[in-house]
Simulated assay, not measured.
Amino acid sequence: MTDHSHLSRTLRRQPKQQRGKKRVEKILDAAATVFDQVGYEAATTHQIAAQAGTAVGSLYQYFLDKAAIFKAMELRHTERVKAFWAQMSTPEIIQLPLRQMIHALVTAAAELFEQPVSRIVFVQFYTAREIFQSIDESMTQEAIDFLASLLHQRNLALSEARCSLLAEVCVHSSNAVILSALRNPDLAHRQQLMHQIEDLLVSYLGPHIGDSRVENVMNVMICPHCQSSQVNKNGFRRGKQCYLCKDCGKQFLETVCPG
């Protein structure tokens, strides 16, 4: 998914040059600032244009009204979140020691919410749900599914139901702390709250996907035919994870792996 794939569909006019694309991004960031300062209801397109340093006529070239701007912000945030999930779903991240893995997740999330558009969209979702046009509760469920997948990959012995339950607790508790952090004007305290998420998740998940658990998973992920550890996931069969050995080319299910 490119950074402009879905957003481009909401624009009245497609920016063809880099200058136009930068102007659209500037308008979205300006809108985030204005919504933060005066609220969505009180904000006007003239205020947004002034904050962006552009004429209101230029704003209307791309956006029909304030609602269209906010919808574009929703789509921009969604694209960034999905890019974040893809970035965090690599074996290099999943197989890190637990503290390092959680640190990578929390750090990437903090960087995501440093962007004005994502910060405001996240806060507004919990304070003014009625203005949203594309984001709904299904995105929270996607976040739970994303984390549940990571948990299962770290400990294949955990059932899907257990992974989903653990992930649900992690997502909802993390979102509550993130919301508190993003609404706090004190940057230092905001950073402290984000760091507490790391401690919270490490403590909660340690008994289920701690480093000893990862060692067991690594033993499982060995080809039973040639004993190679160079294996890739290759879909599911009969409800079990299937692997493909890169060395011998044979496939196997997790239930027949040694360990």
Rank of each mutant, 00 (worst) to 15 (best):
A108P: 10
A109Q: 15
A110I: 14
A110W: 13
F113M: 06
E114H: 10
E114W: 06
Q115E: 06
P116A: 01
P116V: 09
V117F: 03
V117I: 13
V117W: 03
R119D: 05
I120T: 08
V121L: 02
V121A: 03
F122C: 09
V123Y: 08
V123P: 09
Q124F: 11
F125C: 05
F125A: 00
Y126K: 08
Y126D: 09
T127I: 10
A128V: 08
A128N: 11
E130Q: 14
E130I: 14
I131T: 01
F132E: 11
F132Y: 12
F132D: 06
Q133A: 04
S134G: 05
I135Q: 07
I135F: 11
I135E: 09
D136L: 15
D136M: 15
D136E: 15
D136N: 14
E137H: 10
E137G: 05
E137F: 11
S138D: 14
S138V: 13
M139D: 11
M139V: 12
M139P: 06
T140W: 05
T140F: 09
T140I: 15
A143L: 13
D145I: 14
L147W: 09
A148K: 11
A148T: 14
S149I: 07
S149Q: 14
S149A: 14
L150H: 07
L150M: 13
L150Q: 12
L151R: 06
L151M: 14
L151G: 02
L151P: 07
L151W: 14
L151E: 11
H152P: 05
Q153E: 13
Q153V: 10
N155S: 02
N155I: 01
L156A: 04
L156Q: 08
L158K: 03
S159L: 14
E160I: 12
E160F: 08
R162M: 15
R162W: 11
R162C: 08
S164V: 14
S164D: 08
S164H: 13
L165Y: 10
L165W: 15
L166E: 06
A167Q: 12
A167V: 15
E168S: 03
V169Y: 04
V169P: 01
C170N: 03
C170V: 12
C170S: 04
C170R: 03
V171C: 01
H172L: 07
S173I: 01
S173K: 03
S173G: 00
S174L: 10
N175A: 00
A176W: 05
V177H: 00
I178P: 01
I178A: 00
I178L: 04
L179T: 10
L179V: 10
S180M: 09
A181W: 07
A181N: 02
A181G: 02
A181S: 04
R183Y: 12
